[in-house]
Amino acid sequence: MGNMLNVSSNPHIRSSESTTKIMLYVIIALLPTTCFGVYNFGLHALLVVLTTVATTVLTELIYELLMKKKVTIGDLSAAVTGLLLALNLPPQTPLWVAVMGGVFAILVVKMLFGGLGQNFMNPALGARCFLLISFTSIMTNFECDAYTGATPLAALKAGESVNVMDMIIGRTAGTIGETSMLAIVLGACILILLGVIDLRVPGSYIVSFVIFIVLFSGKGLDPQYISAQLAGGGLMLGAFFMATDYVTRPITKKGQYVYGIFLGIMTGIFRLFGPSAEGVSYAIIIGNLLVPLIEKFTTPKPFGKGGERA
């Protein structure tokens, strides 16, 4: 009888949370904006989504089989990366470009650095920036059947007027998953209610970004301009789904505020003073690189350390 009992170190109970569940929640939360993107841009957008997801999952599987490592595609993190990458691609992206992005995200950014939890930058954003540099014309061509003009942010930068209502709903040109502020915020609410993310990073990101453009855009407190800046481009998708990526954001609470504020300022600088109308991806990637430093300076003081014995 004695040998039949399991012995382990305490604690002997575990919460029902799991990595797979968290990833599944993220996928569910991304569905509104994914569906809207497909509805908005048509069938090819769906093909891009399916291609990147299949590519990221297969890349991880093949890499792990070749390296004789434990297969971890069941944790769904590769699928999340694939989905996020697709949402950051223009709707008419050729499928071979989507495949290249997927392979780069998983192989170069994630697996070569040690797999889940070890990558120092967001794989989907890393891949997007890689594609943006390598295939600039393809990645900045947002023309498709539904929309022929510039993206609202580009129009805004050129001084043209934009329809803010369309931007909030998402009836504009842009990448597959970034156009609808409404769908993204709906997804974000799901994540917040499920306890997957909190408002520390997205909140400080968005607030500091707004303060920055109010101070430096020259437009002051123009509500039309501010809401266009908020609804346009990848800010919402970036703030709620990319900047909150566990692996590449600071783990300390204070650090998360610092990180969010940094992202807000960087995005503002890129958008207002950079050559391009957009800057969310680069801002987040640069932020990712600063995470170790931020964590180092924001390590919390342990309980009772203040009241040290004299």
Binding site: N6, S8, H12, T19, T72, D75, G115, L116, G117, Q118
Partner: peptide, 13 residues
């Protein structure tokens, strides 16, 4: 035994 049911996996930070 809840503990033996689960296999530890990578930290996701």
């Amino acid at each position: 035994d809840e503990v033996s049911k689960y296999e530890p996996s990578a930290c996701i930070n």
